[in-house]
Computed example of a mutant assay.
Amino acid sequence: MTTTYAALLRGINVGGARKVPMAELRTLLEGLGHGGVRTYLQSGQAVFTSDHGDAEALAAELTGAIEKHFGFFVDVLVRDHAYLAAIADNCPFPASELEAKQLHVTYFSAPVDADRFAAVDQPAFLPEEFRLGDRALYLYTPDGLGRSKLSEQLAKPRVTKGLIATTRNWNTVVKLVEMTAE
């Protein structure tokens, strides 16, 4: 069965470092035998179809191919349409009432529980807030991610240790749902 996936690459094309041109990423995915390859923005999203059926194996395959082709390691998460749609549908914040810059989702490589975030004093960061989801964290930042003090705390190694974590704004969350539905 063919499934449509989104690959989320972490930390590429930021500040001129770890450049991964999207045209080369598309060619790389096609060379791995995937179909319907498209990219979104320059910040590391690719949509593709595959008969493989194992998102973790697909992520590992793409990670290895990127390292071989570009000469540097990039963390990659691969998620299917059903997962991406469920993340958007289960948002605990009123997404339709917020600006996209105010709402973000951090996707994790594994499930996370509240204990991992116990040291974060949520009331100290209000009105910023976060909620946990399925291998995801929803983050509300009224003044945007760039000014968020809470996001700095959530990115600390003690919180993300042992995980791949990559964050996308709400526009990208919605666009990936749309692209993987096609």
Results as ranks from 00 to 15, higher is better:
residue 127 P to M: 09
residue 11 G to L: 10
residue 164 I to T: 15
residue 78 V to S: 04
residue 140 Y to A: 06
residue 3 T to G: 01
residue 42 Q to M: 11
residue 61 E to M: 09
residue 108 F to M: 04
residue 52 H to S: 15
residue 139 L to I: 10
residue 86 A to M: 13
residue 61 E to W: 03
residue 13 N to D: 08
residue 172 T to W: 10
residue 140 Y to V: 04
residue 178 E to C: 05
residue 6 A to M: 07
residue 79 R to H: 14
residue 63 T to G: 05
residue 145 L to A: 06
residue 94 P to A: 12
residue 98 L to S: 03
residue 167 T to D: 08
residue 25 L to R: 11
residue 52 H to A: 15
residue 78 V to Q: 07
residue 37 V to W: 07
residue 8 L to S: 08
residue 48 F to Q: 05
residue 29 L to V: 14
residue 4 T to Y: 07
residue 86 A to T: 13
residue 171 N to H: 12
residue 33 G to K: 14
residue 8 L to D: 00
residue 112 V to D: 00
residue 120 V to R: 05
residue 154 L to V: 04
residue 77 L to M: 13
residue 48 F to N: 08
residue 13 N to H: 06
residue 147 R to W: 08
residue 111 P to A: 10
residue 107 Y to C: 01
residue 60 A to D: 12
residue 5 Y to V: 03
residue 57 A to N: 08
residue 146 G to W: 08
residue 117 F to I: 02
residue 34 H to A: 03
residue 38 R to C: 06
residue 21 P to E: 06
residue 101 K to R: 15
residue 25 L to V: 12
residue 99 E to T: 12
residue 127 P to G: 08
residue 170 W to A: 02
residue 19 K to M: 15
residue 100 A to Y: 06
residue 34 H to F: 15
residue 159 V to G: 01
residue 1 M to H: 12
residue 20 V to T: 13
residue 3 T to K: 05
residue 179 M to D: 05
residue 79 R to E: 09
residue 182 E to G: 14
residue 2 T to E: 12
residue 161 K to E: 01
residue 122 Q to R: 14
residue 117 F to G: 00
residue 153 Q to P: 02
residue 173 V to R: 01
residue 106 T to N: 02
residue 93 F to C: 08
residue 48 F to L: 11
residue 55 A to I: 07
residue 175 K to P: 02
residue 100 A to M: 03
residue 180 T to Q: 02
residue 34 H to N: 15
residue 39 T to P: 06
residue 143 D to Y: 02
residue 156 K to E: 14
residue 118 A to Y: 02
residue 62 L to I: 15
residue 28 L to N: 11
residue 38 R to T: 15
residue 165 A to P: 01
residue 75 D to S: 14
residue 89 D to A: 15
residue 66 I to H: 02
residue 40 Y to R: 07
residue 41 L to R: 01
residue 174 V to L: 13
residue 84 L to E: 09
residue 27 T to N: 08
residue 22 M to T: 06
residue 136 A to W: 00
residue 75 D to H: 10
residue 45 Q to H: 14
residue 139 L to S: 02
residue 35 G to F: 04
residue 80 D to K: 04
residue 103 L to I: 09
residue 74 V to C: 10
residue 70 F to V: 04
residue 130 F to K: 00
residue 45 Q to R: 12
residue 78 V to R: 04
residue 119 A to L: 12
residue 161 K to T: 00
residue 124 A to F: 07
residue 115 D to G: 13
residue 101 K to G: 10
residue 125 F to W: 11
residue 108 F to L: 09
residue 43 S to R: 06
residue 11 G to R: 11
residue 78 V to T: 10
residue 75 D to R: 09
residue 20 V to D: 04
residue 103 L to T: 04
residue 175 K to N: 11
residue 174 V to H: 03
residue 170 W to H: 06
residue 140 Y to R: 12
residue 67 E to W: 03
residue 44 G to L: 09
residue 161 K to C: 00
residue 36 G to Y: 06
residue 1 M to P: 08
residue 173 V to E: 02
residue 53 G to W: 09
residue 157 P to I: 00
residue 90 N to Y: 11
residue 67 E to P: 05
residue 99 E to G: 15
residue 152 E to D: 12
residue 78 V to K: 03
residue 37 V to S: 09
residue 53 G to M: 07
residue 50 S to F: 12
residue 82 A to E: 14
residue 129 E to G: 07
residue 20 V to P: 11
residue 143 D to I: 04
residue 163 L to Y: 07
residue 113 D to N: 13
residue 79 R to Y: 05
residue 149 K to M: 14
